[in-house]
Nucleic acid binder design. Structure first.
Length: 377
RNA sequence: GGUGGGGUGGCCGAGUGGCUAAUGGCAGCAGACUGUAAAUCUGCCGGGCUCUGCCCUACGUAGGUUCGAAUCCUACCCCCACCA
């Protein structure tokens, strides 16, 4: 259980296989985000048909409703959702960052006001582990402290050091929970440190000292910092990361971010953009972004992306998709979400093929050139 | 025929002497979104230009009052309601 086999490297890029209790994941791979135990708008059958291998769920949201006890009662997250495959739960750490106005951080943990009913809730590293254990995903994430991308050295240090102290507590609690069922769920730590290379390396060092780990996440990127900074941080961490452990870049990303991060050694991704942008009518295509509501698509009989094999692109022309958005039919939101998820999944699949073939760099350079050109369809 | 109410930008609808090219909403146009408080949010939305400003044209039509009118007066046209 929880094995990672590194099959091939091509420059910095890696292809591997991650074995988990509920199945295997061929990397590089994109994980669709299913915050409430559902990838917004899609059925799990539709998610499966996108080729997704693993789905993310959220501790904080599922704790608020329906409550981890309900999920546990109904068989745990993979069973509850009828996904039945590999899953990962985020720890609630990101909500420390994104719900900044509704929370208070202390060393003990984070006090939140629930956006659901306004009630006060406290999540500690221990609580996060207990909730995630009850949810029953294959991978639990450490409860971390994310700071904004523009945080100065002092603030980034504070978040990074707290994340390490919390990691000790996560590991202790998770270890205790897993004592009787060690093959049920693994815990992955999260490297923090903002945009400061020295802090990133210190965070990684502290994390590795607390190991060994079956996977390591890089958090706190794509939170407002410029892209070159994210690339630099990945390049700083790359050589220091253990080769035999999968690397998960949290919250990333857009197609170009996936390719850039894969080139720098990242194996796993998740991002809400595929589904959120899908609901908002913004689709990724090989020739760049397309706003499906655009007036000039009214009479278009072309598929959203001629290169795509998803059910949306095989089944519906742009003119119809545009109509669905203009008419506010929810089918439109779903179809573009399906496409976007498939688009990122396929990007992972293609990247993997190119890494195994040894021509990742050439391929990704050409891919990006085309993506950043103008959409001509 | 009489009485009353009303005619505002693509539509609905505020505004009843200057701060009004005219509040809002809808429709339309464009954009944003990165470990989901998001089927959300933002900008534009009479025309033109040498575009941080300027010039046209506009509140049913035609006149008038006034320094100044979508707003007041007169006539006419049209719509609605009720009465004959």
């Amino acid at each position: 259980m929880f094995e990672f086999q590194l099959e091939k490297t091509d420059g910095g890029a890696r292809a591997g296989t991650l074995t988990l209790p509920h199945g295997t994941v061929r990397t590089p791979a994109f994980m669709p985000v299913g915050t409430h135990g559902a990838v917004r708008g899609l059925s799990m059958d539709e998610v499966r048909r996108t080729g997704a291998q693993i789905v993310l769920g959220n501790t904080y949201h599922l704790h608020l409703r329906p409550g981890e006890e309900v999920v546990a009662h109904l068989g745990g997250l993979p069973r509850f959702t009828r996904w039945e495959g590999p899953m990962l739960t985020d720890s609630g750490g990101f909500q420390v960052f994104s719900l900044a106005e509704l929370r208070k951080i202390t060393e003990e943990g984070v006090t939140f006001r629930s956006p659901v009913d306004g009630s006060q809730r406290m999540i500690t590293p221990e609580r996060s582990m207990e909730i995630q254990w009850a949810l029953g995903a294959d991978i639990a994430m450490a409860f971390d402290h994310v700071v904004p991308g523009q945080s100065d050295h002092a603030h980034a240090t504070e978040g990074m050091e707290r994340t390490l102290r919390w990691l000790d507590r996560c590991r202790a609690r998770h270890g205790a929970l897993a004592a009787e069922a060690p093959d049920r769920q693994t815990l992955w730590p999260i490297v923090q440190g903002g945009v400061h290379d020295d802090l990133r390396l210190a965070s990684l060092r502290g994390t590795l000292e607390r190991g060994p780990w079956t996977g390591i996440a890089i958090g706190g990127l794509s939170v407002g910092e410029p892209k070159p900074v994210m690339h630099r941080v990945l390049e700083t961490l790359g050589p220091a990361l253990p080769a035999g452990v999968p690397r998960y870049l949290m919250g990333v990303g857009f197609p170009e971010d996936l390719l850039e991060a894969i080139a720098r050694g990242v194996d796993l991704f998740d991002c809400v953009a595929a589904t959120r942008n899908g609901r908002h009518g913004s689709a990724w295509t090989a020739a760049g972004k397309v706003n499906i509501r655009r007036a000039d698509l009214r009479l278009s009989d072309a598929p959203l992306d001629p290169d795509c094999d998803c059910e949306t692109c095989r089944g519906y022309p742009r003119g119809y998709l545009r109509h669905l958005f203009v008419a506010e039919e929810m089918l439109g939101l779903r179809l573009v979400s399906i496409h976007n998820v498939r688009f990122l999944v396929r990007l992972g699949e293609e990247a993997r093929r190119r890494i195994l073939a040894g021509d990742y760099d050439d391929w990704s350079r050409e891919w990006l050139r085309r993506y950043h050109g103008k959409d001509t369809a």
